[in-house]
Amino acid sequence: MKIGLYFGTFNPIHVGHLTLANHIAEHSNLDQVWFVVTPQSPFKKKSSLLDNHQRLEMVYRATKDYDKLRPSDIEFGLNQPNYTIDTLTYLHEKFPNHEFALIMGEDNLKSFHKWKNYEIILENHYIYVYPRLTKVKTASQFKDHPKIFNISAPIMGLSSTFIRQEIKAGKNIRPMLPEHVWEYLDEMNFYK
């Protein structure tokens, strides 16, 4: 099985995340896309980041009606701070019959050469790159790389930061969230 790994804090997950992941699942050779919820780093100030399990619950609620989308808490049990290469190594041990690919925005690809063991990641994994609103120049070493695929996914201008700010300001953000996520946020009074 081919799995695309979509990493993020998903604080909260919104329709932009869901639209992008579903588009990639439907328009690529991936069988599933896993939303890998990034845990709270013990070295960073919490600010408005919800608890790991609350964010996982939102991802679960957002993806439960989609066959090709799955929540993942795989990084919750790994040492912090965690690096993508460590997560990939762990996933290979746990799921030896799966093939894992990374899903990232073109802005992340720009700094990919700074990632720990990025050469090993590229050697063993495909990378699916989706466009961002701000055009970023791709580093020449990644321009025509055989393991890097540019996906012509819809460009989403929505951000979790914007949603949190709007909630705090008392605005109605219901259309920006999957229905089950909105119900959970409203019930729990998050971000107010």
Rank of each mutant, 00 (worst) to 15 (best):
E99G: 07
A25E: 09
I85R: 12
F100G: 10
P81E: 12
I24L: 12
F35G: 04
F76T: 13
E119G: 01
V15C: 11
F112K: 06
Y60C: 11
I127L: 09
H98C: 14
L78T: 08
F10L: 08
F43C: 11
V36A: 07
E187Q: 15
K116I: 06
L177M: 12
T134G: 05
L122M: 12
W182G: 01
L158V: 10
F149E: 09
E123W: 08
D107N: 12
N108C: 09
N150L: 09
K168G: 00
T38R: 09
I120G: 04
F35V: 03
F112N: 05
L102H: 07
S152Y: 08
F43A: 11
L88S: 11
A101M: 07
I103F: 08
E179M: 02
H92T: 10
M58L: 13
E75A: 10
M1R: 10
T87N: 05
I13R: 09
E187M: 15
I127Q: 00
K68D: 06
M104N: 04
D65G: 00
Y130K: 04
H113E: 04
Q40I: 13
S160A: 15
A21N: 10
Y126Q: 14
T87E: 03
I13D: 02
H180Y: 08
V129F: 00
R70C: 06
K171M: 08
K64M: 10
T134N: 13
V136E: 03
A62H: 06
H180G: 03
N79E: 03
T138A: 02
Q165N: 01
K46P: 00
Y60N: 11
Y90T: 07
T134E: 14
S28I: 00
L102D: 05
I167V: 04
S159C: 09
K68R: 15
R132V: 01
D31A: 09
Q40G: 02
T19M: 13
Q40A: 14
I173W: 03
N97D: 15
L69R: 06
G8E: 00
I120V: 13
G8A: 01
L177I: 06
F10Q: 01
K2D: 12
P146S: 01
L69D: 05
T138H: 01
Q54W: 02
I173K: 10
T63V: 08
L20D: 03
I121T: 12
I74L: 11
I151Y: 05
Y60G: 00
P175V: 00
S140A: 10
L122D: 02
G16V: 00
